[in-house]
Design a protein around this nucleic acid. Structure first.
Lengths: 248, 248
DNA sequence: CTACAATCAAAACGAACGTTTGATCCAATC
DNA sequence: GATTGGATCAAACGTTCGTTTTGATTGTAG
């Protein structure tokens, strides 16, 4: 098959450009013409190689998420094997899940911060086809990590763990998506607070490393926070209002 | 002036419908025709009353954010007056900032969960006019609360506080935006875990209350988490690597 | 040489988009 | 009762969208 090289070049160039433009402007606001124009390929090339604009977006994510979620599953496998049946530590689980992702931000060949920002912004897109796609891509990973957290925190109600997993996903997504919005919302560049050397426009890989360094303690602190008091239960609930063990 | 009633009816009906549709489908994917159609007004009414689609979105947010951020500032004023010059507790600050917002979700006349979801989803939209608009609307509030946190946590580097404020905003935004996506990502309804009575489709006000109950402890835990170890500082940093005080 | 997948330029498609126009309505003003 | 001016209306404006088609050209594998 003459599928050797030119084809892959066009395909990957389209994917790279689409990844960047979808991140910069969002899915709806990015036109096929702007993609093919920036990629210097024919307008018909997208429909030829991918079939449609929706399928293009799916493929942009699939090529990254397939690798990412496989790494996440392998990381969890290794941890559980090393633990030999004992529950993992929450910090290990978070490191495997979020660390694997954040390390992609340091590696341009894996999409770098461009893909991370795209992912963070797209996770909140309301389009139906996007959400069903993510549901399928994430189902196995989320399930495995959810169960690992259940075992790691046996005294925490499982519903609470699911809520906090959701909070952690949000903190990470938003933090990543907003790394170039932060100064807009907060009115100042992060770097120039507290006397940090700020003038340097942080490189993407440096930014990813700094983000991971800051994010992981925050997530761990939130995950291990004391349980909320159940002030008003619609139905008198079973007594599970004990505090969360602080040692982890 | 014959500005009596029909005009305000049309204006507010447009705003209400736009709020809901922008939330459900996003800004770009919501057409003027779908808005005016659902609001049962003429297609030209939006441009007549607001000038453009962009101005409509801004007005949708302005009528809610003006009230919200005024409440936030007043809440902070009251706290600081009661403290009489002493630093506030972080839990008070978070309650004033996030509690004020989350209470909007319980009050349909203030937009309810519809507005909260819209807000959470729109905060990550890349469109320039949206980001500059939010920057202006939030500037004063963010600045005031940032300073309050600086005073409340004098031993924490200010840059770290800004990062964590960003993380908290993200956890909240995403948690709100995703309250109808949660079962997609996690593969299960939150309610039916841990033996909670789940069958009932949670009403929006009940959902808002439950969300606040779960979110606040998580945010506090994250905010007060131990400081990260500075593994690799580009410039050898002043010694501020001490643990965060646990009592708040 | 032949065959076939990949790429191209160009044009067109129908549909949907945000916006504008000019007429019409109607209550308030003089 | 005529006039004014804001509110509403039907209709059309010009543009852009995603997609498809046509026909020619390339480079490589059999």
């Amino acid at each position: 098959m003459p599928d050797s090289k030119a084809s892959n070049d066009t395909r990957e160039r389209i994917l790279d450009v689409a990844e960047r433009l979808f991140m910069q402007h969002g899915y709806e606001a990015t036109s096929m013409r702007s993609i093919t124009g920036a990629a210097e390929v024919n307008l018909a090339a997208v429909n030829y190689h991918f079939g449609s604009k929706e399928a293009l977006l799916r493929e942009v994510f699939r090529r990254r998420l397939a690798w990412l979620n496989q790494q996440r599953l392998q990381a969890l496998d290794r941890l559980e094997e090393a633990a030999g049946g004992a529950p993992l530590k929450p910090s290990q689980i978070l490191e495997a899940f979020f660390g694997t992702l954040l390390r992609m931000g340091e590696e341009p060949s894996l999409g770098g911060m461009t893909f991370l920002r795209l992912l963070g912004r797209t996770l909140t897109e309301p389009a139906e086809f996007i959400r069903t796609f993510f549901a399928g891509e994430y189902a196995e990973v989320i399930d495995r990590y959810k169960l690992a957290l259940f075992r790691a925190l046996p005294d925490v109600p499982q519903a609470e763990i699911v809520w906090r997993l959701h909070f952690m996903l949000g903190a990470m997504s938003y933090a990543i998506a907003g790394t170039d919005v932060l100064q807009v919302v907060t009115g100042c560049e992060v770097g120039d607070l507290a006397g940090e050397a700020a003038a340097e426009e942080l490189g993407d890989t440096a930014l990813a490393r700094r983000l991971a360094q800051r994010l992981m303690p925050f997530l761990l602190g939130g995950l291990r926070a004391p349980l909320p008091r159940f002030e008003e239960s619609p139905i008198t609930r079973a007594a599970s209002a004990g505090g969360l063990p602080t040692e982890v």
